[in-house]
Amino acid sequence: MASAAHPEPIEPIQPLQPPSGRPRGGHDQHTLPAPFLPDACEPLTQGAEALVYRTHFLTPQTPAVLKYRPPKPYRHPTLDKRLTKARLLAEARVLVKCRREGVSVPAVLGADWEGGWLVLEYVGGGTVRGVLDGWVHRLPELSREGNSETISEGRKKSEEEEALWELMRKVGRAVGRLHEIGVCHGDLTTSNLMVRDEEEYTENETNLPPSGDIVLIDFGLATQTIQDEDRAVDLYVLERAFAATHPAAEPLFQEVLRTYGGSFKGAKSVLRRLEDVRLRGRKKSMLG
């Protein structure tokens, strides 16, 4: 084809909006593992791998998240058990390692590898994605109030902007700490970065971003590694998530990278590797 001889540049795959409405084969189709009962578990999300519920654990005052990996009917039962166990264990090990080393992640409260479930601390608050979306939503209004559309250095920042930038610095430090202890997240999107807030974050009246700590969540694809490549791919995935929010979020992500770069000894070389990963678009050239 004519277009094939001179291929147009290919834009990277943008993370698409999650489907509206749950697919039929979701929470309602699966039986929860004993001793969890449906009336005590409120469905939160369904990934390809795990069903996630909100529940209580140990005491009625301890809100918790139940992650259940139901058996996959297509997989040989022996293989299915082996994989479910290995993945739950890997996730729990990474989380406990993070908690030991002071990286802010949900605590592991309990698990049953054979039963296919893991219970984690419930983290109250919103996601960084929510904060960014809220800010993007108000951009026109902010520019009317005399702020320019994009944030540029050298101009005095509003209180909201300052809080937003502080949040970005926290994200940079949190990711840096994670990488420093030898863990890569594997699916580092803005939806997997929470801002802890004991009083549930809603769109508060001041419009100020929440000031709580960054908590990294969903370590289902995490690995223990100190390779620059893996670390750079984490950053690249996060960069694309920022880009998908709004072009105006670009300088914000630069602040994340800047803080990340100063957060641990090997960070600078990860940033150099990130350049290569960007050029590659994560995918290698395919052999015929």
Partner: peptide, 15 residues
């Protein structure tokens, strides 16, 4: 609970 085994964290830090 004495950390320090893992990749280059703050060695000897106590939880």
């Amino acid at each position: 609970l004495e950390s320090g085994a893992g990749g280059g964290g703050k060695k000897g830090k106590k939880i």
